[in-house]
């Protein structure tokens, strides 16, 4: 139980760091990287939380998170393909 809690806290701090990365990013790609990392860690976090509270049916939600995170990534990349070129310059400092 203690180990589970410790892992939970570790993942939670990883999430916080990823969030910080997403909020304070040099380029827009760093931001996406942070968001993506946040999403994958969230899925892991939910799986852990399910074990911590003894309700492993949380796992379904973890699956949804992993899936939605990927979908979001693809949508963001697709958006880039559309708006590439004209707006890239101002993003790179």
């Amino acid at each position: 139980m203690l180990v589970l809690s410790a892992t939970c806290i570790a993942i939670l701090s990883v999430m916080a760091l990823a969030l910080a990365r997403a909020l304070k990013a040099d380029t827009v790609y760093d931001r996406i990287l942070g968001v993506n990392m946040f999403g994958t860690k969230t899925a892991l976090f939910i799986a852990l939380m399910g074990f911590l509270s003894g309700r492993p049916d949380f796992l379904d939600i973890a699956i949804v998170y992993a899936l939605i995170n990927f979908l979001g990534m693809i949508a963001v990349l697709r958006f880039f393909e559309y708006t590439a070129g004209d707006e890239n310059q101002e993003q790179e400092k």
Partner: peptide, 18 residues
Amino acid sequence: MLFGIYSFLSALIFVNLD
């Protein structure tokens, strides 16, 4: 993108509230 994170976080809170 931040709204995406926002939704993830609020869903996490819901999970935590069972």
